[in-house]
Design a protein around this nucleic acid. Structure first.
Lengths: 212, 212
DNA sequence: GTCTATAAAGGGATAGAC
DNA sequence: GTCTATCCCTTTATAGAC
């Protein structure tokens, strides 16, 4: 089991290298040669393990797309009141994305350039279809939001709008980071402080936005 | 001046075709051959007018990036009170993006994959540098928000956070459209109604989010 | 499993005729 | 200005030795 290479078995090292390259350059811009070099192997091995570039790209995309989903589902699908959900979501989500800051830009770019891939993945997914999970989550939130609205605690809002608002406010700064850093002249430290401030202030912004 | 081809002069037709192809496929995924076919000319003409693929890509990006900027600047830079700005911005921005629904996904993808391009463009821009315009806008908004906060009309919020919130809430649904349509099972009509609802409800969501 | 060598196709760019 | 023909480098993918 002793390996000569940095760490992990070869397949894992290739996948790890593919993650870095695909996330940075996108499916169309990535080069198999660059991935091979990054993994410290030659190009033929990539095909030995993954057959084609497309399969490798899909493996990376699938993993990245699944990376943030559990956090969303766990928090928004819990039995906590809306107020707690919003606070937990904002903080957990910003923290999670901060650990993988390229994921949002990568995912949005891939969604834009290869929307059919998501559809294909959703169809032949093992276990419960993603669309069903999403529908269940939206349904649960809808009841919760409706109940709160009828009690006069919140203004009525469709669950889909609520979820989009949450994700948009958390994710957008990462996806648009180059525009922010250049447009507003932020360096890495300033961007970091911007996120700290955001993490702290978004929950109350969102919650008072929901009040009647 | 009578032309044999569909409409406009050749250079304009090429640029129009390039817009479509680059927006759909991104700089790395676009093929000069596809642009030529789309424009009804041959590939050599593309090089005659634009020298290289990169120059053509930059021409498209520059135009797309500038497409929405005037709306932002005009509305957020005006002398209206914050309340009016929010309402005008949401409606004008959603309307504008609706007419060019691929721009957000395209711009975010390009920003992610070629962040250096924006930096290069910002440096050698003719006229007033974009960074300076952005700084002036943020400065003006900062004064306005601070004044309103001191009068007790709004909760204190940094201008940068305010602007990011506005843009994020308006733009994100377009950039993430495939995820919404597939995840939430929306067809084109449902997505349209989703946007109508959003256009109507976002201003009050944002404004009450800003209240103390 | 991993390598070298190479096939096969793709794609940007240019030369030169009209 | 516009075309055809073609160059030549890049890139994915495979064959076959070890």
């Amino acid at each position: 089991m002793a390996e000569s290479q940095p760490e992990g078995d070869t397949e894992a090292r290739i996948l790890e290298a593919a993650r870095r390259v695909f996330m940075l350059r996108g499916t169309a811009g990535a080069r198999m040669q660059e991935i091979a070099a990054e993994a410290g192997v030659n190009q033929a091995l990539l095909h030995y393990y993954f057959r084609t570039k497309d399969r490798l790209a899909e493996a990376v995309f699938r993993e990245a797309a699944g990376r943030l989903a559990p956090t969303v589902l766990r928090i928004l699908g819990s039995d906590e009141p809306i107020e707690a959900k919003v606070e937990q979501f904002v903080q957990a989500y910003i923290d999670a994305v901060r650990r993988h800051p390229f994921i949002p830009g990568y995912i949005l770019a891939e969604l834009h350039h290869h929307p059919e891939r998501l559809a294909a993945m959703a169809e032949r997914a093992g276990g419960i279809p993603p669309a069903e999970i999403a529908r269940a989550l939206i349904g649960k939130l809808d009841v919760q939001l409706r109940t709160a609205a009828e009690a006069g605690a919140l203004r009525p809002i469709a669950a889909a709008q609520f979820v989009v608002n949450l994700i948009a406010l958390c994710v957008f700064p990462f996806a648009a980071r180059p525009a922010l850093t250049i447009g507003l002249g932020m360096d890495d430290g300033a961007f970091d402080r911007f996120l700290d401030e955001r993490r702290a202030s978004l929950p109350s912004f969102i919650l008072s936005g929901l009040r009647p």
